[in-house]
Design a protein around this nucleic acid. Sequence first.
DNA 1: CAATTACTTTAGAATTATTCTAATGTAACT
DNA 2: AGTTACATTAGAATAATTCTAAAGTAATTG
Lengths: 141, 141
Amino acid sequence: MRKKTRENTNESAVTRLRQAGLRPTRQRNELADLLFRDGNRHLTAETLHAEAVNRGIRVSLATVYNTLHQFTHVGLLRQVMVDATRSYFDTNTVEHQHFYYEEDGTLADIPGSDIGVANVPDAPNGTKVSRVDVVVRLRRN
Amino acid sequence: MRKKTRENTNESAVTRLRQAGLRPTRQRNELADLLFRDGNRHLTAETLHAEAVNRGIRVSLATVYNTLHQFTHVGLLRQVMVDATRSYFDTNTVEHQHFYYEEDGTLADIPGSDIGVANVPDAPNGTKVSRVDVVVRLRRN
DNA sequence: CAATTACTTTAGAATTATTCTAATGTAACT
DNA sequence: AGTTACATTAGAATAATTCTAAAGTAATTG
Ligand SMILES: [Mn+2]
Ligand SMILES: [Mn+2]
Ligand SMILES: [Zn+2]
Ligand SMILES: [Zn+2]
């Protein structure tokens, strides 16, 4: 029987945060747990907040936004731009590409990193490539 | 010396609109003129509205939004998603890719359509690819 | 070429996603 | 334990975009 005390909160989340130089606070621990426990996820701040509240985690929407941005800055998350109205965060920070289901606004990793982006031209003078994003937009047929 | 009458408004814009099944109204004519006269452009609604007002064209911001979306629906424009806070419209509707200058929020076409996206996987069951977007994000170095 | 109809424009209000503020709480350090 | 630095939060504020419904204009009709 495990302890149910505060000390018990997901140790790997705490470690992850410490390594990233972020204080492992209660809300950061619990959000990290939601984000990383069940593998790769693509979600919005609203989505994550709803999920947290749903599981009885008390955290404000502002903190969810703060946390998602902090996690992104330290490289635990990556932000994906596919929809003008929502901002998606991705727990998969390895280089990969996305399918975007336009109808339902859903994102999915393209399996097997098979897409190759060939002949990416040199970055213009004085610039360097920070990232190459590929989004394959899908429609139901 | 050209006529300065209403009849004189950019005939190609009028034709373009008629072909697209849109009524050539004064504001649509003038916006189409701004958009397509000077070649390829990447702009936001606010940008276009400011430019219009600047040239003495009287048009509301709501109409600029309406018009940009209508033009997009009929294929005269294409919407590009690169920044969570702004929505860009592109007068180049031919398949091509973009450089995005993260610092100044500027978009540019990648010249010579040299980028090849290889091994795009089959669209999942019941879906078809509507578009493949490639954005090369650049940072100053 | 008026009258009628259908579509368009617009000001301003409303909505939505996100950020800010400044007060309160908690983690880390001494 | 006390102090300090950083984090959380409610609610207000902002910014981009959309909506509403009233007034205007283009197209069609007789
Ligand atoms: Mn993923
Ligand atoms: Mn927004
Ligand atoms: Zn992903
Ligand atoms: Zn372009």
